[in-house]
Simulated scan of single mutants.
Amino acid sequence: MTIRPTAFASGLALMIAAPAFAQEVNLYSYRQPELMAPLTDAFTEETGIKVNVAHLDKGMVERLTAEGDRSPADLVFTVDISRLAAVVEAGLTQPVQSETLEANVPAAYHDPEGHWWGLTTRARIIYASKDRVAEGDVTTYEDLADPKWEGRICTRSGTHAYNVALVAAYLHHHGEEATLEWLEGVKSNLARKPQGNDRAQVKAIWSGECDISIGNTYYMGKMLEDEEQKEWADSVRIVFPTFENGGAHVNISGVAMTKSAPNKENALKMMEFLTSPKAQEIYAEANYEYPIAPGSEPAELVASWGEFEADDVNLMDLAELRPQALQLIQQVDFDG
């Protein structure tokens, strides 16, 4: 007598395999492996859930769209509100509601509908030459358009996501006409054509090409840990500018659950872990960022840079202004 597998037997095999599959979660991340490892290791140690991470340089939206309902991804982890918003706007996420998430993440740092949740922030600040810029010479983003800075400002491309977010914030506070005028003023103050990354601007200050630059706070920590770049970092100080009617512009790293998450329960556990003070402090220390969970503290080095009042606009509001901000940047030919 020949025994053939039955549908029941096949189903039983799946049931037997299910517990192992249920103890994992799959993450697509734009963040470097060395920054993610402390977090994923801590989560696995605490929960026993294995984390599989696919590190992407670009194309997250395209990959998730191509995979559709068959995507193995449970969570996406990325930096910058524009990248988070792009995944949401493509219809690739699902709303998540959780008392733990609500308690850990202030309202300004999550999507009102729950599609993404913030983890850590970084401020978009001014790096100022210690030798050529006096204390108090620049205090607001509006100051960057002052003619006294003609030929003294360096920045990366105006169309980079970090600068588009800053312009969106300016647009939120001042409206289109004033933002266009401000962009023209900043462009006229540039010491050179926008180029390179945020660290390259600090190097330019060190070499005397310019006196101030626009950059993210965490690059100071990155430069200080690099033997060659430490000299650049030592040549500048961090200034936390504000908007005249607001606070300092911040951007965010965040997490979202995919629309087709195959391990939804484990994905929620990981989201709640990532927003916990413990996890945020691990991540913030590894990348010199600011944790946002109540009761959490930045690393000692980050705290030494000074305190600032973050702008309280919800970042999703800024995300909606991105297309208009980019249009204004292109209208003044900022990078030309």
Rank of each mutant, 00 (worst) to 15 (best):
145 A>K: 10
170 Y>R: 06
130 K>P: 10
112 P>L: 09
261 A>V: 05
238 I>C: 08
45 E>S: 11
47 T>P: 06
136 G>I: 02
28 Y>W: 06
90 A>C: 01
158 G>H: 09
207 S>P: 01
182 W>C: 05
98 S>Y: 06
130 K>T: 13
274 L>P: 05
58 K>V: 00
67 E>Y: 05
96 V>I: 09
59 G>Y: 14
138 V>D: 01
316 M>R: 14
24 E>A: 13
295 G>N: 13
220 M>R: 04
74 D>Y: 02
194 P>D: 14
153 I>R: 12
237 R>G: 03
288 Y>S: 02
20 A>K: 14
256 A>L: 05
235 S>V: 10
251 N>P: 01
191 A>T: 03
153 I>K: 09
223 M>S: 00
74 D>S: 04
63 R>Q: 13
140 T>H: 12
167 V>W: 01
68 G>H: 13
67 E>L: 08
58 K>T: 07
202 V>P: 02
9 A>C: 11
18 A>L: 15
9 A>I: 04
276 S>G: 04
14 L>V: 05
214 I>N: 00
123 A>Q: 06
179 T>K: 07
45 E>Q: 12
68 G>P: 15
193 K>P: 02
148 K>M: 06
88 V>C: 02
157 S>W: 04
226 D>H: 07
24 E>G: 11
237 R>L: 07
60 M>R: 00
95 P>V: 06
75 L>P: 13
128 A>I: 01
19 P>Q: 03
269 K>T: 04
46 E>I: 15
315 L>G: 10
34 E>K: 11
232 W>F: 09
175 G>D: 10
81 I>Q: 14
88 V>S: 00
24 E>I: 12
113 E>P: 11
102 E>H: 11
300 E>I: 12
12 L>C: 10
169 A>H: 06
38 P>D: 02
313 V>Q: 12
141 Y>D: 05
107 A>R: 14
105 V>K: 01
35 L>S: 08
176 E>N: 01
67 E>N: 07
171 L>K: 07
193 K>A: 13
170 Y>T: 07
67 E>C: 10
73 A>R: 07
264 K>A: 15
217 T>M: 03
130 K>H: 08
170 Y>M: 08
174 H>E: 15
287 N>G: 07
104 N>Q: 11
84 L>D: 04
175 G>M: 08
87 V>W: 00
314 N>W: 09
199 R>F: 00
26 N>W: 09
247 G>T: 10
75 L>C: 02
125 I>C: 02
234 D>A: 15
279 A>S: 15
254 G>E: 02
24 E>S: 14
263 N>E: 10
151 G>Y: 05
34 E>V: 13
57 D>S: 09
252 I>C: 00
244 E>R: 11
294 P>A: 15
144 L>S: 06
103 A>V: 02
243 F>Y: 14
316 M>L: 13
115 H>W: 00
121 T>Y: 00
25 V>T: 08
315 L>Y: 15
238 I>W: 04
161 A>D: 12
162 Y>F: 01
29 S>H: 02
289 E>F: 05
299 A>C: 08
61 V>G: 01
185 G>Y: 04
38 P>K: 13
156 R>V: 03
207 S>Y: 10
228 E>A: 11
272 E>Q: 07
263 N>A: 06
110 H>R: 14
239 V>Q: 04
116 W>P: 01
312 D>E: 13
225 E>S: 08
290 Y>F: 11
178 A>P: 08
209 E>R: 12
192 R>K: 10
331 Q>K: 15
294 P>K: 07
64 L>E: 01
274 L>H: 10
